[in-house]
């Protein structure tokens, strides 16, 4: 499922005048940008500026309260994104290989290839609960390899990775983009992605921040 989407012609993720509220508070206001096939976009900005919220909005988990997120050609965004957040979505009671096999079953990828691709084959039978933080993060990132989604949304992917793993990660992002994929990465470290564009996010204007969440107003206000 979804394996062939990278062959699609011109794919473009467009964000226009995006406004997102979280917990009734305005987090993102009037944000616009576009990502084309093969591009990586790096989100920068101080803590709390809305990088994670933006990624969740792009993934369709946090519905925008204004503006539009469109994927051209006219495709359902949620079928084409893969998100890695602060949490690795790993079940600690299952082994590394079992975690990957479950995701492979869910998305239809190749678990063994992802295991080798992430350099985790030596840990295959180890319960994920006994892996180090960096190993868990690698396992979490390996999910992107088998999901076969065109748009990778990554929230601070380098946390707890060592230099070698970080190089592996940037290599994977480059390969993904070279194959026609896209990546939106929120990070504080300088990633070795020379072709990537940088989006500096800023806090919304204070007066605008007083607005209430239209979602709450419309239904319960």
């Amino acid at each position: 499922m979804g394996r062939s989407e990278r062959q699609d012609g011109a794919m473009r993720l467009e964000v226009e005048d995006l406004t997102v509220h979280r917990g009734g508070r305005l987090v993102i206001a009037g944000l616009g940008f576009a990502v084309d096939r093969g591009e990586a976009l790096i989100l920068r900005g101080p803590n709390g500026v809305g990088k994670s919220t933006l990624l969740r909005a792009l993934a369709g988990l946090a519905p925008p309260s204004g503006g539009r997120i469109t994927l051209t050609p006219d495709l359902a965004l949620e079928d084409h994104v893969a998100l890695t957040g602060h949490l690795d979505a790993i079940k600690l009671q299952m082994s590394v290989a079992e975690n990957l096999r479950f995701w492979a079953g869910l998305h239809g990828g190749d678990a063994d290839a992802a295991l080798i691709g992430a350099g985790l084959e030596a840990l295959a039978d180890r319960p994920a609960g006994f892996c180090s933080a960096g190993q868990k993060r690698r396992l979490g990132l390996a999910r992107l390899l088998l999901a076969g989604r065109a748009i990778w949304l990554m929230d601070e992917p380098t946390v707890s990775l060592d230099r070698e793993a970080e190089a592996w990660l940037t290599g994977q992002v480059r390969t993904h983009c070279a194959g026609g994929g896209m990546a939106v990465i929120a990070t504080h470290v300088a990633l070795d992605l020379p072709a990537a564009r940088v989006l500096r996010m800023q806090r919304p204007e204070p007066q605008a921040a007083h607005g209430t969440d239209p979602f709450l107003q419309g239904r319960w206000g």
Partner: peptide, 14 residues
């Protein structure tokens, strides 16, 4: 929800 799997399930083909 606590380990992030719910996000993965929400974005899965299911």
């Amino acid at each position: 929800l606590e380990d992030g799997s719910l996000d993965v399930l929400a974005l899965s083909p299911l």
